[in-house]
Amino acid sequence: MGYHHVNTNDIEPFDSPGREFRSIGRAIGLETLGISHVVAEPGEQIPLQYHYHEEQEEAFYVISGVLHVETPDDEYVVEEDEVFIAEPTSPHRAYNPNQSASSVEVLAFGAPSVDDIHPYEP
């Protein structure tokens, strides 16, 4: 059996200008689930460019602020206590718009935890 209790402030953030990005999954050695805590200032993406995954499902839970997600067909506005889910092969770009009045805080989940990121050109 294995259990983990983690304070995200104890995890060293990645060097990401304009946002605070901490990989919880990597910090505790998870193999099948990626979990990240992200705080993005206005004008910053969370955390990747427009992309899609072959296998990975992604979910973004908004803790505070408002997250915007661009897709080929629509723009979604995801508010506090809401979740946005991108299924495999579904292109998306999650970001905090330039005109936002505040940062956005998000927990991002991905499974399986595979490196299958593909850039998407709209």
Rank of each mutant, 00 (worst) to 15 (best):
D15E: 15
L67I: 07
F60D: 04
L107R: 02
I46L: 15
F109H: 08
Y50S: 13
A59I: 02
P42T: 09
A101I: 11
M1T: 10
E75A: 07
E57T: 13
D10G: 03
Q49T: 10
I85G: 01
P97A: 10
A27S: 15
I46H: 02
L48N: 06
P112Q: 06
S64E: 14
Q99T: 12
A94Y: 07
T89W: 02
I28N: 08
E82K: 08
E75Y: 02
L33R: 01
P47E: 15
P97L: 09
E44L: 00
P72I: 09
E80R: 11
I24S: 03
D115T: 12
H68V: 06
T89D: 08
P122K: 12
P112M: 04
V114E: 13
G43A: 09
E57K: 04
V83C: 09
E58R: 00
E20T: 12
H4G: 06
N96K: 07
N98H: 11
P112R: 01
G65N: 03
H5E: 04
T89A: 03
H37E: 08
Q45L: 07
I35N: 10
E55R: 13
E79C: 00
E70T: 11
H51N: 08
V69P: 05
V62L: 02
L30W: 07
S100H: 07
S90V: 13
A94N: 09
V104A: 09
L67N: 09
A101C: 03
P91A: 00
E87I: 04
P72D: 00
Y120N: 08
P47M: 09
F60T: 04
N7Y: 09
F21L: 14
E80M: 04
N9C: 04
I28T: 07
A27N: 15
A59M: 07
P47D: 14
Y52C: 02
E80P: 03
E57G: 02
L33S: 03
V77I: 14
F21Q: 04
P112F: 07
V6C: 11
V6L: 15
A94E: 09
Y52N: 00
Y50P: 10
Y95S: 05
S103C: 05
S113F: 13
S90M: 12
P47G: 14
G29M: 06
G2V: 08
M1V: 08
A111N: 07
S16C: 10
A101M: 06
H53E: 09
N98E: 15
S100C: 06
F21A: 01
P17Y: 02
F21N: 02
S36L: 08
E55S: 11
V38W: 04
F21R: 10
P122M: 03
A108P: 02
L67Y: 08
E82D: 15
P122R: 13
H53N: 12
G18S: 08
I63N: 03
L107K: 00
R26M: 08
S103P: 03
I24E: 06
H4P: 01
F21C: 01
S16R: 14
E87T: 11
A27T: 13
T32C: 00
V106N: 07
I35K: 09
P13D: 13
P112Y: 05
H68Y: 14
V62C: 00
G18P: 02
V77P: 04
T32Q: 12
V6M: 13
N7L: 11
L30D: 02
S113C: 01
E57A: 01
V106M: 01
